[in-house]
């Protein structure tokens, strides 16, 4: 089974960040508080299916594009 990513989360589903598949993107994500081990939850999907809004560590809401979310691998 291939690795699941944040872009495949269902609405309301929670997951823990494991690693990143894109090095450049991971820098930005790390700065925004998406650290391996941190719990995220899919909160909302924009009307056209992209971008999505995730809750990061229960702290705040982050909006990102699907292609950005697909670089975040989850457990």
């Amino acid at each position: 089974m291939s690795v699941r990513t944040v872009s495949q989360l269902q609405k309301g589903e929670k997951a823990v960040i494991r690693s990143f598949s894109d090095r450049l993107m991971s820098l930005k994500l790390l700065e925004m508080g998406c650290v391996p081990g941190c719990e995220v939850r899919l909160d909302a999907v924009a009307p056209l299916g992209d971008p999505i809004c995730i809750n990061v560590g229960g702290c705040y809401s982050l909006s990102l594009r699907l292609n950005e979310a697909s670089t975040i691998e989850i457990e």
Partner: peptide, 9 residues
């Protein structure tokens, strides 16, 4: 370069 969106709500 790739475009970023990532935005704190």
């Amino acid at each position: 370069e790739p475009g970023y969106f990532m935005l704190e709500m």
